[in-house]
Amino acid sequence: MEIAENAALVVVDVQRGFEEEEYWGPRDNPDADRNIAGLIDAWQGTGRPVVFVRHDSLKQDSPLREGYSGNAFKEYVEERRGKGLGPELFLTKSVNSAFHGTPDLDAWLRETGVRQVVVAGIQTNMCAETTARVGGNLGYEVFFALDATYTFDAVGPWGWRLSAQELSRATAVTLHGGGFARVVRSEQLMAAVK
C-alpha cells in the first residue's frame, strides 16, 4: 500500500456525545478510539494533513447539538489538535458528509494537491461511510480504516434490526465492492506512512 506524503486523514465526528450509550445503544469495535488516536499520531508525526470534523446536530435532543457538552471532541482528539507537523483543518457540518461542511473540504484538499484521503471516525455506516462515498465520487483515492470506526445497533423499516457489527460489515462490503474506497486496517496505514 502506498500512502502519499500529502495524503489527508479525515477524522469524522469523534465527539463526546457518542459516549451516551442510553441514547445510541450498543456499539461495536471497542478498540476504535485507540486506533483513531494511533492514526492521528502517525499522520501528525509524519507531517501529513489532518482534518478534524465536528457534527453540529440540528436535532434538539441530540447529544451532538451545539451548546451541549457532547458536541465537543473526545479528550484524546482535542489534546492532539494543533500538535501536528503538517497542515490541519477544522470543519463543522450538520449533514452526513464532511464534504458538505464549512469550510469546503474539497476546495481545501484540491488547493493543497491532496489526491488520497483516509477516513476514520464515527459512525461507521453514517458520516464516515458517507464521507468516503462522496470522496470516491469526487475522484479521490479513499482508504477507509474500518477498525478506526464504530457504530451502533439500529432498527430499520418493518422492524428489521441489524447489530453494529452487521452494519460495519455492510459498510465494508458496500464501500469496497462498490469501488468507493479501499477498506483497510489502521495498522496497515500506520505501517505505510512510517
Score class of each variant (00 low, 15 high):
Lys59Asp: 14
Lys59Ser: 13
Gln60Trp: 12
Ser62Cys: 06
Ser62Trp: 05
Pro63Asn: 04
Leu64His: 01
Leu64Gln: 08
Leu64Tyr: 02
Arg65Tyr: 09
Glu66Met: 08
Glu66Ile: 04
Gly67Trp: 09
Tyr68Asp: 11
Ser69Ile: 09
Ser69His: 08
Ser69Pro: 05
Asn71Gln: 10
Asn71Tyr: 03
Asn71Ser: 13
Ala72His: 11
Ala72Ser: 04
Glu75Ile: 00
Glu75Ala: 15
Tyr76Met: 04
Tyr76Ser: 01
Tyr76Ala: 01
Tyr76Thr: 00
Glu78Leu: 10
Arg80Met: 11
Arg80Ile: 07
Arg81Cys: 09
Arg81Lys: 15
Arg81Thr: 03
Gly82His: 06
Gly82Asp: 07
Lys83Gly: 02
Lys83Cys: 05
Gly84Ser: 04
Leu85Gly: 13
Glu88Ser: 02
Leu91Tyr: 03
Leu91Glu: 06
Leu91His: 07
Leu91Lys: 11
Leu91Asn: 01
Thr92Glu: 14
Ser94Val: 00
Val95Glu: 02
Val95Gln: 06
Asn96Cys: 14
Asn96Leu: 13
Ser97Leu: 09
Ser97Tyr: 12
Ser97Lys: 03
Ser97Gly: 03
Ser97Gln: 04
Ala98Val: 00
Ala98Asn: 02
Phe99Ser: 05
His100Phe: 10
His100Ala: 12
Gly101Thr: 01
Asp104His: 09
Asp104Ser: 13
Asp104Tyr: 07
Leu105His: 12
Leu105Phe: 13
Asp106Lys: 12
Ala107His: 05
Ala107Pro: 00
Ala107Ser: 10
Trp108Tyr: 11
Leu109Gly: 01
Leu109Asn: 01
Arg110Asp: 12
Glu111Gly: 02
Glu111Asn: 11
Thr112Trp: 10
Thr112Asn: 14
Thr112Gln: 15
Thr112Met: 11
Thr112Glu: 12
Gly113Arg: 13
Arg115Val: 08
Arg115Trp: 01
Val117Gly: 00
Val117Pro: 00
Val117Asn: 08
Val117Gln: 11
Val118Leu: 15
Val118Ile: 14
Val118Asn: 03
Val119Ile: 14
Val119Trp: 03
Ile122Ala: 07
Ile122Phe: 14
Ile122Arg: 07
Gln123His: 07
Gln123Cys: 09
Gln123Pro: 04
Thr124Cys: 11
Thr124Asp: 05
Asn125Thr: 00
Met126His: 12
Met126Cys: 11
Ala128Asn: 06
Ala128Glu: 02
Ala128Leu: 06
Glu129Thr: 02
Glu129His: 01
Glu129Ser: 13
Thr130Asn: 14
Thr131Asn: 06
Thr131Asp: 05
Arg133Lys: 15
Arg133Ser: 08
Gly135Ala: 02
Gly135Arg: 05
Gly136His: 03
Leu138Ser: 14
Gly139Trp: 14
Gly139Phe: 12
Glu141Phe: 11
Val142Thr: 10
Phe143Met: 04
Ala145Phe: 06
Ala145Trp: 10
Asp147Arg: 06
Ala148Ser: 15
Thr149Gly: 04
Tyr150Ala: 07
Thr151Ala: 09
Phe152Ser: 04
Asp153Val: 08
Asp153Lys: 03
Ala154Gly: 06
Ala154Pro: 00
Val155Phe: 10
Gly156Trp: 15
Gly156Thr: 03
Gly156Glu: 07
Pro157Gln: 14
Trp158Met: 14
Trp158Val: 12
Gly159Thr: 01
Gly159Ser: 06
Leu162Val: 02
Ser163Met: 10
Ser163Lys: 15
Ser163Val: 10
Ser163Arg: 11
Ala164Lys: 02
Ala164Tyr: 00
Ala164Pro: 01
Gln165Phe: 10
